[in-house]
Amino acid sequence: MIEVKNIKKSFGDQMVLKGVSTVLDTGKTNLIIGQSGSGKTVFLKSLLGIHTPDSGTISFDGRIYSDLNADEKRELRTEIGMVFQGSALFDSMTVEENIGFPLKMFTSKTQKQIKERVDFVIDRVKLIDAHKKKPSEISGGMQKRVAIARAIVNNPKYLFCDEPNSGLDPKTAIVIDNLIQEITSEYNITTVINTHDMNSVMEIGDKIVFLKNGLKEWEGDKTQIFKTDNEAVTDFVYSSELFKKVREAVLKEGN
């Protein structure tokens, strides 16, 4: 569980996070949604330790990040898996080298043990015939699978995903969403996904935090979001005709 208490972050005169508090649950996919500029990337980067909040605390299962010393922070980081928006795979490495990288860096596993673990996660994310290929030789969807495999190879407690569906076709996006959700419940990981994809919200939104102008505007789950009266949320969610019709159908069914 990740507990965020009143975090604030400014860049120069611009205050991007104005005091966000929430609890991100273990074994669930926690989605951070909001319009561009709402502060969700800064929020995610603050959770990851890339940005240091000006005030407030972030605790990982009781460990307050700002109170940890350098070694404890390093230890905590080995418990984190991250799927970047553009996958961020290492160009110079093959798929299996990319996936095995955290094991090679942070464990004392032998080459054989690394190979076994890499083969296992490659099977788990259903990557076919990609072991020896470079990231540039595989499709965007496969790159996302490699990024997920790399993020989970060292059995993380926390999985962060920044726009995991960006640049993918709707069908592949659903496959990636489902894969993340399956992995989350299978390994009991605290997963945090930064997205503005409403299909993801509908598919895997166990918990949804809606940010607006650097503040938490609303939180709930994927069923509650279709029934909320919060104007900012409805403006965001029902900006497309398709979702307006979905909401009408949901409300009709509810009535």
Binding site: L48, G49, I50, K73, R74, R77, T78, I80, M82, F84, Q85, G86, A88, L89, F90, D91, F101, P102, M105, F106, F160
Partner: peptide
Amino acid sequence: GTMRVTEQIDALEVMGV
């Protein structure tokens, strides 16, 4: 620079490298 713009350096940092 390419590693920076494609977030590969962020990936290293997040891993604790």
